[in-house]
Structures are given as C-alpha cells and as structure tokens.
Amino acid sequence: MLQVQGVLKSYATPQGSLAVLAGVDLHLGERSSLALMGESGSGKSTLLHLVAGLDRVDGGSIRVGEQRLDQLNEAQLAHWRRTEIGLVFQQFNLIGSLRVDDNLAFQARLAGRFDSQWQAQLVERLGLGDLLKRYPEQLSGGQQQRVAVGRALASRPGLLLADEPTGNLDEATSDDVLQLLLDLLRDTPTSLLMVTHSPRIAARLDQQVVLHRGRVVPADAR
C-alpha cells in the first residue's frame, strides 16, 4: 500500500540548509498498521505530510498503491487527497459550522463516495447516534475525535494517516478512541500510518518504527 524509498527533505534556515529526512525507507502493506515514533523534531510530521501529498520530497520517491506522488502536479495531488486517503489530526479539525452528521459525510461527499449504509454503520459503532445534530463545540474532546475518525473512514480510503490522534485526550478516552479505530479498520481495506510519541499506543499497532537521525529504524534498534 505504501512504499517510501530514499526520501530526502531539507528546509532553509538562517543558519543554512537543515536536513530533516536523510534517506527514509518505509513499507506498509495492505490492511496493516504502523506506528511511527521518534523524539520531538525528528521529522515524523514532515514524513506524514509528504506521504499525504501536502509537501514535496527533495529526493527519493513515495508510492501509495499504484500512484507515485512525485509524478503528480498540484491539481492531481489535490484530487488524490480528496479521494484516496483519510486524515486524522491531534486537533480534530472539524468544521465548526457543520453539525456532526454533515462533518461525518463531508470527506465522502468530496470524494464522490458517500454511502448512507456505511455512514449509518459508522454512527452506530462510534456511538454518535445521539450527537448527530450537535455542533463540534458542543462535544467533548473524545466525541470530537470519534467524529474525526468517522469522517476519515467514511470514504473507505486505502490509506489513513493519523498525526498524534489521541494526543489531546486523557488515557482512558485515548484507549477507547484507538480501540474503535482499530476495530473499524479490521472491517475495511484501509491501512494505517500513525505518528505517536507513546510506546503504549504504538504497541497496539502491527508494526513500530522510529525516526532517528533522519532515517527509519526498527523500534528496538536504537
């Protein structure tokens, strides 16, 4: 599902070029989950943004399914993001002016793949039935993140990218949201790449790797 090969990424700073990724290799199979860990500033979010097509590599390649992202122009990348991946963020990023039911359907409608039966199943399994007519500001953090998970999975994307998705939640709520996410993934063709600082959360996924000195190493290799 995901192949990252020799990816390089640097940023200009007043002190000169800063190399963040120095030849990253990563592989994620279909229907698999992988936790990406690393110290603050190691480039975890940078790599996730590259895989999401939100930024461009300086070298190397990223392939998601049959598509090489470095071969797409900006319009093609925007269409690809709408239709082929799901995104879950630490800050939830729900649309404040939309009620829960419309937030849930938003990504699937953009992708042209809204399925009312699948949406109803997501609502039931995420425990959102009594919340559909509320607005995000009327929800707890855990409830908002459940909506964000449902929105990301509503279009049945091939790849779900999650950046510290439980980072703003207490431990018990974090465990509940993660369990719901993993249960749903078992019933979809979706693979999961999750950035997390928590070894406890990472251990729940199929694979764990660490970004260290600009490269990916097994979690137990440092």
Rank of each mutant, 00 (worst) to 15 (best):
L2R: 05
L2T: 05
L2D: 05
G6P: 04
V7I: 09
K9G: 00
Y11V: 02
T13K: 05
Q15V: 00
L18Y: 15
A19W: 14
A22Q: 15
G23E: 05
G29I: 13
E30K: 15
S32T: 14
L34N: 06
L34P: 01
G38D: 10
G41Y: 11
S42I: 03
S45T: 13
S45R: 04
L47F: 01
H49N: 15
L50C: 01
V51C: 00
A52C: 03
R56P: 03
I62D: 10
V64D: 01
R68Q: 13
R68Y: 15
L72Q: 06
E74D: 15
E74F: 09
A75D: 15
H79F: 10
W80T: 08
R81I: 10
R82N: 11
T83R: 15
G86N: 08
V88I: 14
I95K: 00
I95E: 06
G96I: 00
R99I: 12
A105D: 02
F106S: 08
Q107A: 15
G112W: 00
F114C: 02
S116W: 07
W118T: 07
W118E: 10
Q119C: 08
Q121S: 13
Q121A: 13
V123I: 13
E124C: 07
R125S: 05
L132H: 04
Y135I: 05
Q138A: 10
S140R: 04
G141F: 06
Q144C: 13
V147K: 00
A148P: 03
R151L: 07
A152E: 10
A152R: 06
A154F: 11
R156E: 06
A162G: 09
N168D: 12
L169V: 12
E171T: 15
A172E: 14
S174K: 04
D175F: 01
V177H: 01
L185I: 15
R186I: 09
T188K: 02
P189F: 01
T190K: 07
S191M: 03
S191C: 01
L192G: 00
L192Q: 07
L193R: 07
M194Y: 08
M194D: 11
A202Q: 05
Q207F: 07
Q208M: 08
Q208L: 01
V209C: 01
H212P: 00
R213Q: 15
A219W: 14
A219I: 12
D220K: 11
